[in-house]
């Protein structure tokens, strides 16, 4: 804790302590380290399947932006622990992240990351560059590495609109950090292999956001088709995938009824063609 001499003249409350950095996490480290995720005592035994895991997230660039979509399932081993979990988070006006891996740690990281971006923006009066945002997230994942070794793995997917390029950008990570910029599209989580295979055939460069949303929904359906931990659209309970688009107009989460309509259209197609749209052979 800071002594009075470290504070601006006259102030006594250590909330006024200036760490000289615009990072909220760094301030938290000095002011209230117990609030930081991943700073607990080491975990004695690996956690394994005991706590819920979040599954598949896909992202693809479109004309003037990027689309991210995620299924709604969380699993603990062979159990479905939640049917309507939300895994795509708005992190600021022009970026979002999806989480795969340990759900609780991921949610905590998404919350902290959002504050981190806003804190910088309010303090400095400017938004971080897209690279800056991606790098910051990499540091947060790296700090979680000791926990990841014990089974609390979080691997996010980061997507942002880059005003300098007027285009969307996608960044992937591994447990050690990153970032790895991905061209065109990327998927993370247990169903990612299937989703990526699907997107490989369905992705169209510079397609409209609406078409790219459809491609992402198809990819999620394909992932749910082959991966037991990925949830398909739940028609009876009306639980639909979370879909977000980011363009120069900012982050927009598609409302449920809009997604429902798109999913219904896709399901109708799948009634006659269970494997979904066919990519041309030549």
């Amino acid at each position: 804790m800071a002594s009075h001499r470290d504070l601006p003249a006259g102030l006594r409350d250590s909330i006024f302590l200036d760490t000289g950095s615009s990072s909220f996490t760094e301030f938290l480290t000095a002011y209230a380290p117990h609030l930081l995720p991943g700073r607990r005592e080491g975990i004695a035994t690996p956690i394994g399947d005991a706590i819920p895991h979040a599954t598949t997230i896909v992202a693809a660039t479109c004309a003037g932006g990027v689309v991210m979509a995620g299924d709604r399932r969380a699993t603990s081993g062979n159990m479905i622990s939640q049917r309507d979990v939300e895994k795509v988070y708005r992190t600021d006006d022009y970026s979002c992240m999806g989480i795969a891996g340990t759900a609780s740690t991921g949610i905590e990281m998404a919350r902290l990351y959002r504050v981190e971006l806003e804190h910088y923006e309010k303090r400095e009066g400017r938004t971080l560059s897209v690279e800056g945002k991606a790098n910051r997230l990499a540091t947060m994942i790296r700090e979680n590495l000791p926990n990841a070794m014990q089974g609390l793995v979080v691997v996010p997917l980061f997507a942002a609109y880059d005003p300098d390029r007027d285009a969307g950008r996608i960044f992937g990570y591994d447990v050690g950090g990153g970032p790895y910029e991905q061209q065109q599209f990327h998927a993370i989580g247990s169903g990612s292999i299937f989703a990526r295979g699907s997107l490989k055939k369905l992705y169209r460069e510079n397609a409209s956001p609406a078409d790219t949303v459809l491609a992402c929904l198809q990819a999620l359906y394909d992932a749910a088709d082959d991966d037991s931990a990925t949830g398909g659209p739940d028609v009876t309970r009306k639980i639909w995938p979370i879909v977000a688009t980011i363009t120069d107009e900012g982050f927009r989460r598609l409302p449920d009824d809009e997604v429902a309509e798109l999913v219904q259209g896709m399901l109708e197609g799948r009634m006659t063609d269970p494997d979904g749209p066919v990519a041309p052979l030549r």
Binding site: F16, F27, V115, H119, K122
Partner: peptide
């Protein structure tokens, strides 16, 4: 400026830390 800027930054930290907690 330097005085109210210190107050502003402290206020941002206060708000962010409470919103996060």
């Amino acid at each position: 400026y330097n005085e109210f800027e210190a107050l502003r930054l402290g206020g941002i930290r206060y708000a962010d830390i409470n919103g996060y907690t």
